[in-house]
Design a protein around this nucleic acid. Structure first.
Lengths: 159, 159
DNA sequence: GTTGAAAGATCCCAGAC
DNA sequence: GTCTGGGATCTTTCAAC
């Protein structure tokens, strides 16, 4: 991964509909090698997929709730069950295992507080959770799917 | 927004490269009306953009840190400055104004703990923050850009 | 809503330098 | 890496039903 690859990824993270020819022009490459680079990054799994990003408010999912979970259960089987349960809920858009005093953190997306309560009841009916605490986001000030590329290294393959 | 639109969005949230003809086939529509629906949802801003999703580990940004900020400053000017600062940092991928005991929550993406420390120093040198606490994610169990569509309402326009 | 058609852009992949 | 070229595919927009 060199500087040109990073430039390509920067563009594709912003707009995946951009034609290869235009990307090439912007990074100082002709179409063919630019296309080959993109192809390779897709094969390598650097580019996982291309998706449509929707407006949360316009699809009535404008409220984010962060749910912190502490538990006494630390077995692998329990986590697998928890993960499978969460996978089923479209309202859960992010799910992390944490270090520190909170064991798990979930980001939930719902239309309003009432819908969150419905979700919460659904969740605890599917799996036993001790010590759950919810924090509501009042405003989403920044949200991007674009990862920082400043850390992307030059790999040995490129030599 | 009717059921067919929701089906279209479900598909596009998963894979934005799918040809319109195939989307049409899957939702029971021919190409032309399907294309018109997609076009309209783009004009209406329901579909905001199409982006490439990268593998965090492969671009060396595999560690998520959640940063909770409490502050005494609650003026609008201060928030504007904070927001502008955060906008400049590619490492900050999400930023929320919260209710409850935490005022702001940020999701930071970095290669490792060392890079987080560097970021943290950069951040506090740019803006004065009282009471910052960091929680590290050990594992990203779920992450999706796809919003739940079960709440998307039938709007009056569709009657 | 449907089908069919057609123009133009883009993708994909050659071959040659 | 560059360029050219060509066929397949897809997008986009017709007209007609």
């Amino acid at each position: 991964m060199d500087k040109i690859d990073r430039k390509i990824l920067t563009l594709l993270q912003k707009d995946a509909t951009m034609p290869v020819a235009e990307i090439g022009r912007k990074v100082g490459l002709s179409t063919t090698p630019c296309w080959r680079r993109i192809q390779k990054m897709e094969e390598d799994g650097v580019i996982k997929r291309r998706v449509a990003v929707l407006d949360p408010v316009k699809v009535n999912a404008g409220v984010t709730v962060f749910v912190s979970v502490k538990t006494n259960e630390h077995s692998e089987g329990w986590l697998r069950k928890f993960a499978a349960t969460v996978e089923d809920f479209a309202e859960v858009v992010e799910f992390y295992r944490m270090s520190g005093d909170v064991d798990y953190l979930l980001r939930i997306v719902v239309p309003d507080i009432g819908a969150y309560d419905t979700f919460y009841k659904k969740l605890i009916s599917r799996i036993a959770l001790t010590d759950v605490s919810s924090s509501f986001a009042m405003e989403q000030i920044k949200y991007t799917t674009a990862l920082p590329l400043e850390f992307a290294l030059i790999s040995d393959d490129d030599k």
